[in-house]
């Protein structure tokens, strides 16, 4: 493992795009500022120089058209990887994602599939302006037909993106903007894919299970480190994909300790955590030794960046919830 190059999350995403565009000439990248600038985070830097302006396209500022045109491009034989600059901006494209892109295979009874990947950074912790950090992933869970992928580590960032681009169905690929440059790790060179619907146990402990996805996985790891100092051994499960959900992996992890805390960056009520809790109580009721707790953002509008610590889940809140659950 140690001879693998260490990359940041951002570099891993870029490597996947470079490799897949080289491997499959149908793959194209489109979105605002993705070409000459290389994206506002520079994720796509160098792609236009390598693959030219026909395959790496700066589009007008219109999220609905970026997604809607990607569906048409896919029907016409291309494999689009569309960037929506921030997940919060996908509300302007919501109809084109849920009722259009996600349903096109179904509506056409299989005549047309929509092999489209939508990349979108999201999540708080970086003091960004309004609409840039919103964690609205659960809203797309109610749009059957689209898959929802949220890597938290560089190797998964690459492996899940390659899987997403090759998947014959549309995929919403959510990038943890706060981890772009802060998390580095070994990334397998070349063809490395991670199958959807397989969670990853990133830390093992016998006392309590912390369930999360995307950047919240790292909050859980930090909390687990603090808990260990007090002798509480926490497991951390990274779901990696919300749709499809790895129910078997989730239940297996729950059965280890019978005590669970679910953590997410979206507001509490109606968040995907509620789906996790409902699934666990139905599938593993007999294994539970304590009520399941959730640590999430508050049910308020996203506040200004200077106030976001009052809003977001924190390591401290996770530690407190885990302790209360263990001591139940």
């Amino acid at each position: 493992m140690s001879d693998q190059p260490e990359l940041s999350v951002l570099e891993a995403i870029r490597e996947a795009l470079f490799e897949e565009m080289g491997r499959d000439e149908r793959v194209m990248v489109l979105g605002m500022d993705v070409g000459r600038l290389g994206g506002v985070f520079r994720v796509t830097r160098g792609l236009m120089e390598r693959y030219g302006p026909e395959r790496v396209v700066d589009t007008p500022l219109a999220e609905g058209a970026i997604v809607g045109a990607s569906l048409g491009l896919a029907i016409g034989g291309m494999v689009p990887v569309a960037e929506v600059q921030f997940l919060g901006f996908t509300h302007q494209a919501f109809h084109q994602i849920g009722p259009q892109l996600a349903r096109y295979r179904f509506r056409s009874r299989g005549r047309f599939s929509a092999q489209v990947t939508i990349r979108a950074p999201f999540g708080g912790g970086t003091r960004t302006p309004e609409f840039h950090p919103d964690a609205i992933e659960a809203q797309f869970v109610q749009a059957p037909g689209v898959k929802i992928v949220c890597p938290a580590f560089p190797d998964d960032a690459k492996g899940l993106l390659l899987e997403a681009i090759r998947d014959p169905d549309p995929v919403l690929y959510l990038e943890p903007q706060r981890l772009y440059r802060s998390i580095r790790g070994p990334v397998p060179p070349g063809d490395h894919t991670v199958p959807f619907g397989s969670s990853r146990l990133v830390r093992e402990g016998k006392d309590v299970l912390l369930v999360a996805w995307s950047a919240a996985v790292h909050l859980c790891l930090e909390a687990a480190g603090l808990l260990a100092q007090d002798g509480v051994e926490a497991s951390v499960l990274d779901l990696r994909t919300l749709v499809p959900l790895d129910v078997a992996g989730l239940i297996a992890a729950v059965e280890q300790s019978g005590k669970v805390v679910v953590v997410h960056e979206a507001p509490l009520t109606g968040g995907f955590g509620a789906e996790i809790v409902a699934t666990i109580q139905q599938e593993a009721f007999g294994s539970l030794d304590a009520p399941i707790r959730r640590v999430a953002a508050r049910d308020t509008p996203y506040p200004p960046g200077s106030m976001e610590d009052y809003f977001l889940p924190s390591v401290r809140r996770i530690v407190a919830a885990a302790r209360a659950t263990v001591e139940y």
């Binding site: 609905g64 809607g68 045109a69 048409g72 491009l73 896919a74 029907i75 016409g76 291309m78 689009p80």
Partner: peptide, 12 residues
């Protein structure tokens, strides 16, 4: 809603 699809298909 079909208009962006048509633009994309023509683009392809």
């Amino acid at each position: 809603a079909q208009l962006p699809h048509a633009a994309g298909l023509a683009w392809a």
